[in-house]
Nucleic acid binder design. Sequence first.
RNA 1: GGCCUGUUGGUGAAGCGGUUUAACACACAUGCCUUUCACGCAUGCACACACGGGUUCAAAUCCCGUACAGGCUACCA
Length: 549
Amino acid sequence: MTREEYADLLLPGVTHNTDYYEKLYPERELPEEAIVTRYAPSPTGFIHIGALYSAFISNKMANQTGGVFFLRIEDTDQKRSVDDGVNKIIEDLEKFNIKFDEGVTKDGDKGKYGPYTQSSRKEIYWAYAKKLIIEDKAYPCFCTEEECTHDKELQEKYKERIGYYGRWAKCRKLNMEDVIKKVNNGEKYIIRLKSTGDFNKRFKFKDCIKGKSELPENDMDIPIIKSDGLPTYHFAHAVDDHLMHTTHIIRGDEWFSSIPIHTELFVKLGFKVPKYAHISPLMIDDNGSKRKLSKRKDKEAAISFYHEQGIPNEAVMLYLETVANSNFEIWLEQNKDKDPNEFKLDFKKMSTGGTLFDYNKLINISKNYISKLKASDVYDLALNHANIYDKDFANLLIKYKDYSTKVFNIEREQKKPRKDISCFSDIKNQMWYMYDELFNPESYEWQNVNDKNEIELILNTYFNEYYNVNDDKDNWFKHMQECAEKLGYAGNMKDYKENPNNYKGSITDISMVIRVALTSKSMTPDLYDIICLLGTDRIKERIKKALQF
RNA sequence: GGCCUGUUGGUGAAGCGGUUUAACACACAUGCCUUUCACGCAUGCACACACGGGUUCAAAUCCCGUACAGGCUACCA
């Protein structure tokens, strides 16, 4: 039996050889500096913030170098795949403005290097696995799960490294006749790499983010084709990224120790080794110790969390970009007029240790971002959020669209806008008193002036004698001052501070009484704007309500 | 257990052998401004280079050890 026939026995039914695929997927015609990279998730339907982070970096790296960013679905683990997982991933990433040049889309594959779903590429993996068998760089393994666990226990007992290597790689010693016999007997097998590495030798390489590094060479005969016929991640990575001509493998830090395995695979397959960039994970503080954000324990791990909070997607991205390259913030500060997209991300500036996820910082970025939006955009986003998470409030927003937009516009479209909305789930708590339907105060936050009679006197005097619907802001304030003086309060703070004893209080006290009467709150946006927005009738009602309280 | 990687103030981080009495941002505090809050401005705080040894005229920066943290060690990705 020739080696070709032997390989065919082990992996039957392969119609094309590797030369065919090499020709089918020619080199990409791109400038030298162009980065070709990919986002390669398992379709579990859940996007981890860390995955979004890595997708963002990959996307931006490809874009800024005129390269290609594609989506490949890694569904070689059938147990974990979820039915609608792929569409969910595409939709979610779109929301964060991450778009693919190529790969899996909602309407099938786009691009010349497909198929982009690993479960559809079985033939291709088999062709390359066959090549390795023919060249005696891979072999079938008949070991059962029980045998492997048994060996593992022995290895633990003897304090030897755990794994399938060296003298523990039993099936490696099988000759062709043994194998043929076993196959004909119907024994199940997998295909393993025949490693020629030496654990005691150092493998030196360079990671784009971590820099010069070294690890022991790989000597494990790792599985490349599983018993279900699908490839393992390692093998699929090598074959796919070679054929798709990925230049940079940008992925999570947890893959770092696999570099020797991957490099050995590339070399044995006769492929050019790509560049690697391992991104350090996002961590969270767990009772004083750092740990990776976990999708089971941490609500912040799921990107849906930010949606619920009503943190704008753009703000999340700005935060992630700050985490990726901390000089981004400084750049933004210095280039306020420029498009943030002009900022160039740099691998070398990415942190090598785990970064603590800083919710405060995110909120701050979000607050700044929202402060720069137009009132109508705030309205749209707030409505979107309320539509999903607070139907009643959404109805109010719809009912009072223009009015709500004006409310959001208080102290907004100006050089130094108000910054008090950090996320859309906050809005109702901040603005409820502007809606009659919600205006049922549990208490009134009277400050210095809390005597009922005095309050009544101030309110009546102001609204009967000094309030004028047509006042502009300057006149309004002038009238406020006159009113204060008439009632024995200082009209301006300077006078009051010089001779506090000459007055009952100051203009601040008058303003405060009016503010609290109208809103029940002592801290609100600009009083003049509130008065204008409420209008005479509602003001009267609210005064009545306050005095009756 | 083995193999890697990392450790700068409350947080993120700049720095990569001398220009560092260690940037900047967030958080926090105080003051100014001001009809409240927010904004803005100013100031402060945080007593920051994990620890111990080296190398050097000189170390946060280079080397070694220890501690701690994280990752990998699947027919999962």
